[in-house]
């Protein structure tokens, strides 16, 4: 059981009272629905290239392409730049990229990668960080020193540099998960697999576990001497039992709050890695941003739209994180509050 009734009540109360958590839930909901139902919502296969449709602007804008060709004019070979105006069409509401791939479809499919890497990466970080932190905090002393100092060493490197180094070390392995929509034959025209960049998931987890370990350690240090832990010890409970039954559940709330915010950090890190080309899939916002880099002057939407998607996702996740923090902060948690 993750939440006690009281915690659930606090979450509901904050959600009811404040605007931003509501917004967070709506935005995050959109993100999840978009990612889950990408094959249904996407108007095109995001990987299909339609060169005749390339660089169409989003609805409401017009775009220009410059075509350079060599022509024989008056007996001389001249380089001629032709500027054609491309108008937006409803077939590609958010336009297309340089290879004529539908931007809307790419954004929807990119949400899958970002969310998967964000959630799985945080899970990896939690699987490493939480037990490490709990054990370090609970036992203290030398065990604490050994575990936490090794974490500090990792923190000494900038996370992006470390991630790049690790991806370079492991190579870019990917996991291909069959897309259920396609397998069930509902959307046969779409890519048949969700490509999960396995190395990236592992690496972002490895880079970020220390933060979770730190907060878990802090909580465990406090809880190790809580009277109810002493009471459990006095009836003969083992450290394992105490860690599982008392320390972990009571440390979970702050860990969860941090983990939520970590999801956002990891989404950003994934985008950065994809931007640098260290990724196993091309269906990634960061990758798309890098693709449009050279076209900024003529086709701004190729970078801006995936860039906006990243901002949107990070914002949504952070709003959820803030909601958790506000609702679960022990200072605000107290029932009733005020009073004599």
């Amino acid at each position: 059981m993750m939440f006690t009734p009281r915690t659930r009540r606090a979450l509901r109360r904050t959600l009811r009272r404040q605007l931003l958590p509501k917004l967070g839930v709506v935005l995050f909901g959109l993100l999840v629905v978009g990612a889950l139902c990408a094959p249904l919502l996407a108007p095109h296969d995001p990987t299909t290239q339609q060169l005749d449709e390339k660089l169409r602007p989003p609805i409401g804008f017009s775009g220009q392409t410059e075509q350079t060709s060599s022509q024989l004019v008056d007996g001389e070979v001249k380089t001629v730049t032709e500027t054609t105006t491309i108008s937006a069409t409803w077939t590609h509401p958010l336009g297309t990229d340089a290879l004529g791939r539908d931007m809307l479809s790419r954004v929807l499919y990119g949400a899958r990668t970002s969310l998967l890497v964000g959630l799985l990466g945080t899970t990896v970080a939690a699987i490493i960080g939480v037990p490490t932190g709990l054990i370090a905090g609970y036992y203290g002393g030398r065990i604490d020193d050994a575990l936490m100092r090794s974490g500090d060493v990792m923190l000494a490197f900038p996370s992006l540099v470390l991630a790049v180094a690790l991806v370079g070390l492991f190579g870019t392995a990917t996991v291909r998960i069959p897309d259920p929509w396609v397998v069930l034959g509902i959307t046969p025209a779409m890519p048949a697999h969700v490509v999960l960049p396995g190395t990236v998931v592992l690496v972002v987890g490895l880079v970020n576990w220390v933060w979770l370990a730190r907060i878990a350690r802090g909580e465990a240090m406090g809880l190790a001497n809580a009277p109810y832990v002493l009471a459990a010890r006095s009836v003969g409970a083992s450290d394992r039992f105490i860690l599982r039954r008392h320390v972990l559940p009571n440390a979970l709330t702050p860990i969860l709050v941090l983990a939520t915010i970590q999801v956002a950090t990891i989404i950003l890190l994934e985008s950065a890695l994809a931007f640098l080309g260290f990724t196993g899939t091309t269906l990634s916002w960061g990758f798309d941003v890098s693709q449009g880099r050279d076209l900024l002057s003529t086709a701004w939407w190729v970078t801006t739209i995936p860039g906006f998607a990243i901002v949107f996702a990070v914002f949504a996740v952070n709003l959820i994180g803030d909601w958790f923090r506000d609702a679960l902060d022990p200072g605000i948690d107290a029932d009733g509050g005020g009073g004599p």
Binding site: R13, D335, G336, G337, G338, G339, P340
Partner: peptide, 12 residues
């Protein structure tokens, strides 16, 4: 009186 989330408290 104190106004709290659960209603008014008749403190004094």
């Amino acid at each position: 009186r104190f106004d709290t989330e659960d209603g008014r408290v008749h403190a004094v």
